[in-house]
Design a protein around this nucleic acid. Structure first.
Lengths: 225, 225, 225, 225
DNA sequence: CATGAATGAGCTTTCATTCAT
DNA sequence: GATGAATGAAAGCTCATTCAT
């Protein structure tokens, strides 16, 4: 018993210092993501991030040179870094382009839209004008790759004769708008909806994808989705 | 003589003060709307609002107990009640539902989306969590009537056999998403786009409406828009 | 009696607000000069300057945009602004150049060297490398005009056949060195001298001027240098 | 076998540690001297001193209880006792006193003024008021012997009939001022001069010595001072 | 002994709010 | 009523110092 207690204690103590360089940044990034999304960039205090990560103010600045750098790291870890993988998945997809589009939006929901990272979009929207550096960073690291990804999906459909020919610049927004709407508008304004009006994300996505693919208008022949 | 002089002076001063007194709150609210929309709540300085309204910092706090109260007043003041008129226009419309939908969205852009009022949507979105009573107000006075309006347009299309049968709760968002996206996302994140990527609102709306009505998929028979 | 008390009170109160915009900057500059000279630029805390001037921290920044601007204002008020007058006095002087040089150095002592402003030289010396902006400012506003002033005095003597022909660039330092030495070295290292070794500024200046003018060597016999 | 391995390992470690242990303080003092001279006391960071000495921050505080103690140690360590040798050279000199003075100042430049040790003068000057005991030490060990040395040179000239009779207490400063000026003022304020205004130390010294010996006034005509 | 992660007091600067005039 | 000088609580960031390993 005693030896067990001791080893436990030892483990705990060990942990506290051993996990330092490795675990700290992750804990800080997690705390920062939560707080940024919750309160916005400007309203989030560095000290609060540190406290939520269980460290002191000074420690935060040991790992991130400034609050802006912390934010960039949050964006990088939660979004920017994942584009390569998403691009690879796109290349490997072998089904129809309609299926790919539906699949992509569902994956986006599962991996971003439904996570805390989704709040970053709303965050950027509010703070972009006050922090031009962050806006430029987000534009470069998130928006441009995102646009590019959507454009490829659409182009694939057009190239394979599955989609109508459309202006790509505006076509991208047809796909983007429902996702951005879901990330930015719903958490803010949907919160005060009566419970039975709350959106089911799956149904929302299905409805949006159906509309994108088939349109609202009736047609007299069966579609291939 | 002296009393005449005094009363004259007094009258002049009074008139000037009285006239200005009524105008003050309006000028302050107008200045505050502009600045809140431009920079957000936190980044807007009380002194700048006062300066833009042509009064001193102290005067602002004479009319509004705090910056928060000013914000509330701005939102309350500016969220118009144009829904009755819009509903009437809807009832009177005699063309096809597809045409009505396109017309409605273009009217929305002309009357709301392209005006200063559009900025209020972004504003509400960012600050909703900090001003729950305002969020509820906005929900009740703007969002619910807006949803209802869209729902009626869609229902009209379904009833007349022009639109597919869709779940109305989710169908509303098919129309809403591109509009909210245009109001909230573009001004913030589109600003840093290269000039030749800047969106033309008309083309954006056309592309969105085409997609909503026809879908992205090719069909082998002519549509009736 | 009562009316006197009242009027006194009133006067005091009046004073507190009436002297505001006019007197504050001066009081702050005086406090800043004292503290900068006493503790150096970096070690002087803004709050302490404010406290010594009898105002709050915020008030300081109402009048001076930053600590650096405060410092520049101190230098400007105490030194830089006075060169025009000194130059004018130089132009008007009608005596011999030797007398002018002696007079100038005595005036320098009376107006700068013996005042608190003398400490600014030591201050700049220590902080120059850490605050390049301040160093450049001081160079431009004080050192260059100062050099120019000395150069003119020497040139006057040479032109009138009173002084030997000398290289002006180095000649300036012959006059400057004893003054800078007095301002920088003495207050720091002379403070710990035994009382009867303490320098009498007048004698110091006389000895220096005598040396500058006549040299150390006896003039009734040929030199062997 | 095992014990041999252990002791070997131990020995190696020990040797390495033992050797370094003695070197540590010296390396730290050298690094600290450089940095203090370069940037001043306050602006020198403990971590930078440690890094330049090739050890960690913690090690510095193992050898010196605080940054202040480190500063004191640096000054004590570096203020050499070369005065006996210089005094001996003075006694042995057989040329004219004017030549001796010029020679002495050139030697001072070569052995002190142009070396890192010159920076200590500026350092002491800035921090004297914060370290009174160091100031006293410097006064006793450096300034007084220095004064004494200069005084002897001048007295020699007077005794041999080469120099004018002067008040020794003030005469010392005639020689000292240009040297202190060169050590303290030039490195700080001369750095921002345009390149073609940069001082050549030899010319500076020559100009100063010429002035000291001959004076500025022409000697072929009567002076009017 | 040596390390370097962690700390937190302390600094400059901002800005909503107050209140004497 | 209107003013704007004055306030002081924060907030981001630094760095001397500590201490578990």
């Amino acid at each position: 018993m005693i030896s067990k207690l001791l080893s436990d204690t030892c483990a705990t103590v060990r942990t506290k210092h051993a996990r330092r360089k490795e675990a700290r940044p992750g804990e800080l990034l997690a705390a920062a993501l939560e707080l940024f999304v919750e309160k916005g960039f400007a309203a989030t205090k560095a000290e609060e991030v540190a406290r939520r990560a269980g460290v002191s103010k000074g420690t935060l600045f040991l790992y991130f040179a400034s609050k802006e750098e912390l934010f960039k790291a949050v964006v990088r870890e939660n979004i920017a870094e994942r584009f390569p993988q998403w691009n690879a998945e796109l290349e490997a997809y072998s089904g129809s382009s309609a299926e790919l589009l539906r699949y992509s939006m569902q994956q986006w929901w599962a991996r971003v839209g439904s996570t805390k990272a989704a709040g970053l979009a709303k965050l950027m929207m509010s703070e972009a004008s006050n922090f031009p550096d962050l806006a430029a960073f987000y534009q470069r690291e998130v928006i441009q790759p995102g646009h590019e990804l959507i454009r490829r999906i659409l182009q694939r459909g057009v190239d394979k004769g599955e989609f109508r020919g459309i202006d790509m610049q505006y076509g991208v927004y047809i796909v983007l708008a429902p996702m951005i709407f879901m990330m930015t508008w719903q958490p803010a304004m949907g919160a005060s909806l009566s419970p039975n009006d709350t959106l089911d994300p799956q149904k929302y996505l299905d409805a949006q994808v159906d509309a994108l693919l088939l349109g609202l208008c009736r047609t007299d022949r069966p579609h291939t989705t």
